[in-house]
């Protein structure tokens, strides 16, 4: 208690707040970009646009992950659900020629059900989130492979006589993959921003979001205050599943195919983004604003390393180091 007070006196609050700590990491990375600009590449908007595009799918997963982590949980299944919905999206639009809105609704429903079921297991049967979502991760991957027959679902459609015929790419793929605002922004980035906005509204403007924070902060106190803990957990994991489906649709559109092997280890990138932003894995604290900073930090880091032609080996090593550094920076509280 006492040293908390003295620390407050030593440093003004705006320096020690989670937001400024997270921003500090982002600024450090950004300054690195200004220094190692790869012959001016970093000064071009196109670089930033491509960074945003590259990070969007991960960022969409990070939105759902933020909600889940705030309830003191974790969701390992987002990458697999992404693959499953990517496969389903490609299958329904390319092969079955469903109208795009029906395909989208279907994929969102599948994602939401996958996540919601994890949440049900966690709330109703008190299975640890790690285990429940690990099971979902394996299961959803299996379904993706089963539905796709282990093949990438692409525009090469097998005919009854065994030959392949190429069909045209559905319009919805082109639309999601397009650049807008005079080519200055990609649609997937707009989708990412929409996901952040939706999660932000849920977390800060709706009762359910308040309950998520309370459950993560002290589940027992929440139960005794009449908070409907199980439905809220189903909602949090369901939203994570829903966003995984959004990410799956984007991924399929970007790759022009549904790959059952897609999204492997994406959950780890999403968790890293949330954690670098400063949302605590203990739950009860965190915000979408912090996650946005985390998304940008990782996005810029990867981009800067890639425009400077740093090999993947060193890129991975550096990313590991930066994650630890960013978390340590937020630690001494």
């Amino acid at each position: 208690m006492a040293d908390k007070l003295t620390q407050k006196n030593r440093m003004p609050e705006w320096i020690t707040s989670p937001t400024s700590r997270a921003l500090a990491a982002l600024i450090v990375v950004f300054v690195l970009g200004l220094l190692f600009h790869a012959e001016g590449a970093f000064y071009k908007w196109g670089t930033h646009r491509d960074m945003l595009r590259a990070v969007s799918v991960y960022g969409i997963l990070a939105c759902g992950m933020t909600l889940v982590i705030i309830t003191a949980g974790i969701d390992l299944s987002v990458g697999s659900v992404l693959a499953l919905t990517a496969v389903l999206f490609a299958l329904t639009t390319i092969h079955w020629q469903w109208p795009f809105w029906l395909a989208i609704l279907f994929c969102l429903a599948v994602g939401g059900v996958c996540g919601g079921f994890s949440g049900y297991l966690i709330g109703r049967f008190r299975i640890q989130p790690f285990i429940a979502t690990l099971a979902m991760m394996v299961f959803a991957r299996g379904v993706a492979k089963w539905v796709s027959g282990g093949q990438k679902i692409s525009t090469a459609v097998q005919q009854p006589d065994g030959t392949y015929q190429y069909v045209s790419v559905p319009d919805i793929f082109t639309l999601i993959n397009a650049k807008i605002f005079g080519g200055n922004l990609t649609v997937v980035t707009v989708i990412l921003l929409a996901c952040i906005l939706i999660s932000w509204i849920l977390l800060t403007r709706l009762r359910q979001g308040r309950y998520m924070l309370a459950i993560g902060g002290n589940e027992q106190a929440a139960v005794l205050s009449g908070v409907p803990v199980n439905p809220i957990k189903i909602l949090a994991y369901g939203m994570a599943g829903l966003f995984s489906a959004v990410a799956g649709i984007c991924q399929a559109s970007q790759e022009l195919q549904g790959d059952p092997e897609a999204g492997v280890a994406y959950e780890l990138s999403a968790i890293a983004m949330v954690v670098i932003g400063g949302t605590s894995l203990q739950g009860g604290r965190g915000s979408l604003w912090l996650t946005l900073i985390g998304i940008l930090t990782i996005g810029y880091l990867e981009k800067i390393l890639s425009i400077n032609a740093v090999g993947e080996d060193k890129r991975l090593m550096l990313t590991g180091v930066i994650i630890i550094a960013a978390v340590l920076l937020q630690k001494n509280k």
Binding site: R205, L206, R207, Q208, L213, G217, N218, A221, A222, G284
Partner: peptide, 29 residues
């Protein structure tokens, strides 16, 4: 500390936790 309060959250959030529906018609706070 262990069953009454969500220690990390603020005063308002704690004080309204048990009657939040009153302050959020249709879910909107």
């Amino acid at each position: 500390k262990s069953t009454g309060l969500v220690l990390g959250r603020d005063i308002v959030e704690n004080a309204s936790l048990a009657c939040l529906p009153k302050f959020s018609p249709a879910g909107w706070l």
